[in-house]
Amino acid sequence: MNIFRLSGDLSHLLAILLLLVKIWKTRSCAGISGKSQILFAIVYTTRYLDLFTSFVSVYNSFMKVVFLTASYGTLYLMFFKFKPTYDHNHDSFRILYLIIPSLVLSFIIVHVYTVMEILWTYSIYLEAVAIMPQLFMVSRTGEAETITSHYLFALGSYRALYILNWIYRYYTEDFLDMIVIIAGIVQTILYCDFFYLYITKVLKGKRLSLP
């Protein structure tokens, strides 16, 4: 554990809780992509199956349970409790275009051919692109609520902080996992456009709207 990893985790946690609180307080999931949330639930489920097979630390296990619970809680709110507020017309990204290639890639580029390792690798690849339906939705509607922008910023920052964590771990522990590093860089690059808009608009008190 180092400061970059911890900051990344806290940023990730903040993002997930921010989204839950936003939906709960406004009693609405307008502007949120249910498809991205489905992908994140798949990501957490396939990655955290190791809760049953290996134990690293109380911190890790606790966070995994929180992420899983919050993720399924979000799905419940979106697709059951506040379903009428879900804007499915604008959530039209075809997620099979992300699910299938990630799955194929996880069979081609993987460290070890075991079920758990392939599922873990799949979760890494899928996570890298899971935000695309949400970004697509923002581009289709041309705007995002400020709280949604904060959510996206925290979620994007998490992987960017993890990149610093990997650089740090490379120098201090000789740790180098190219799969997670490349995927993490791709994931962060996808947010760059949004980061730019967030810094130039939202931080100056303006609503995020596209020209």
């Binding site: 990893r5 190791d50 097979t53 995994k64 992420f67 460290h111 070890v112 873990w120 993890y162």
Partner: peptide, 10 residues
């Protein structure tokens, strides 16, 4: 090689 236990990240 990486084993499950070595994925000490979230």
């Amino acid at each position: 090689p990486v084993t499950d236990a070595e994925h000490d990240e979230l």
